[in-house]
Amino acid sequence: MNDKQEVTFTVNGEKVSVDVVPRELLVHTLRERLNLTGTHIGCDSSHCGACTVDFNGRSVKACTVLTVQAQDAHIVTVEGLAGPSGLHPVQEGFQQEHGLQCGFCTPGMLMRAYRFLQENPNPTEDQVRTGMAGNLCRCTGYQNIVKAVQYAANKLSARSV
């Protein structure tokens, strides 16, 4: 039961291998073995979304995924969001629209927004609220988070024109 298994996956474009026991949670592997501490733990029970990462092109809560389930997975964390040309539009949006205060929910929010805007590039305000409903914030009241996501949507669609 405590036998370790080798698990290989890609994080932020880099291939990594870790030896883990089956019960190790992906969020702990990311934070403690790979030192990617941007992904946070808020509730332990998959309710808050602070641990949201992009997993094979879908948003998931890394507190409720076993690392052994990540074999061959492609994972993007907040650390992988900015590109060589600078911040990702969602990062820019959160800064421009005051979409964060204490910063603890922010990485999860950004990772969800990053995927959400690929699922729905031109969302209405209500769609932003529904699309971001897996992430809790205690500081902002969401109003500026909605604006931040809309800012990013505009920026992204301007870019793709």
Binding site: S46, G49, T52, F55, R58, S59, V60, K61, T64, V65, R112, F116, T130, G131, M132, A133, G134
Partner: peptide, 9 residues
Amino acid sequence: IADPQVRNR
């Protein structure tokens, strides 16, 4: 059901 992330799993 649940929320977007949970519905992905």
